[in-house]
């Protein structure tokens, strides 16, 4: 699924940087019914992980009350040049990944 990642392409060593992620997902709560009364099964993202050069720096659990297309923003310290990897997992075996690189000078 489409994802939008905002990581600064360059940062100074030791600088605090903001990482923003937005991904496509309907986040169906599992509490809604169709017009004929059948329950719409739950279909949400349940977890998000961000790794910085392989080391986990941020993790979040997601729940049914979170709106569609979840947007997550968090901070980290720019330590070294490399790659941020993002992973979303969810119901029905959902899995989506994205990555972004940073140059630390």
């Amino acid at each position: 699924m489409a994802a939008l990642i905002n990581v600064p392409s360059k940062a100074r060593r030791g600088e605090i940087i903001e990482i923003r992620t937005l991904t496509s997902h309907i986040m169906e709560t599992g509490f809604r019914h169709t017009a004929d009364g059948t329950l719409v099964p739950r279909d949400i993202i349940t977890g998000f992980v961000c790794r910085y050069n392989g080391a986990e720096i941020f993790r979040a659990d997601l729940f049914p009350a979170i709106a569609a297309n979840p947007y997550l923003s968090f901070f980290t310290v720019a330590k070294e040049s490399g790659k941020f990897e993002f992973e979303w997992i969810g119901d029905n075996g959902y899995s989506s990944t994205a990555s972004a690189s940073i140059t630390v000078g």
Partner: peptide, 14 residues
Amino acid sequence: DDDTANPGMLFVLD
């Protein structure tokens, strides 16, 4: 205003 925060841009990518 921010194309990485605008959820409409997900549809543009699709």
